[in-house]
Design a binder for these strands. Sequence first.
DNA 1: CCTTTGGTCAACCATTTGGTTGAATATAGT
DNA 2: ACTATATTCAACCAAATGGTTGACCAAAGG
Lengths: 119, 119
Amino acid sequence: MTQPHHAKSLDLVFAALADPTRRAILEMLLEDDMAVTDVAEPFEMSLAAVSKHLTLLMRAGLIAQEKRGRVKWCKLEPDAMRAASIWMQGFGQFEALDLDGLERFLEAELNETDDTHPT
Amino acid sequence: MTQPHHAKSLDLVFAALADPTRRAILEMLLEDDMAVTDVAEPFEMSLAAVSKHLTLLMRAGLIAQEKRGRVKWCKLEPDAMRAASIWMQGFGQFEALDLDGLERFLEAELNETDDTHPT
DNA sequence: CCTTTGGTCAACCATTTGGTTGAATATAGT
DNA sequence: ACTATATTCAACCAAATGGTTGACCAAAGG
């Protein structure tokens, strides 16, 4: 296998990001570290389902989990996005860090994920 | 469906990017527009399989296809990556446009995709 | 008209994904 | 020791992926 670490990791990262629930989780973790149960709370699905999503995010390296007591804390690991982000920037010269667009976009995402985790 | 254009499109774009064959195709199209058959040539899989990949890339908006004569030309549509790229930049402040990293990375990607389309 | 070329479609197959439920495990609280 | 909480595991299911093959349609070229 010539596959040098990179490709597989891109696969995992992009695949992980391809699900709205998982993206919503990442956005939640952007604000604070959270326990699994708290991560799951806003979603209309079983805890086990969310646990699986977290496993995928782990394997993609996008989060880290640390067990303290009986609680497992989830923490964003944003560096895992670097490679993917850099890869994308090879296409189109969308100027990096369009803060304005970013803001509009994140807001839209947050509204829209009401679908996924209505509260 | 409250889902406002954005989420679905992020789903499709990220999912499309999660496959090494599809990423390789996009990299090829970065250099030039190509006919379907020519896109398929380097890969060790059937034309039909590549055709399916192209369909996914189309639905994600990452490429456009135009039929001229009996040949269908594929053209990169890099704007479709914008939203996804911007979304990712909301995490980690990896400075946008790390050209050095980009260069190393694309090179690695190109080597490694020899797995996928050995020539 | 016949044949080749370009490309998709349809049916099929194995694997993965996203979800469920119910049981299992581990730690905390009383 | 018992109970409640936090989390995963296991078995299952439906749907989507990534691939195959063979038939099919459309456009050139002789």
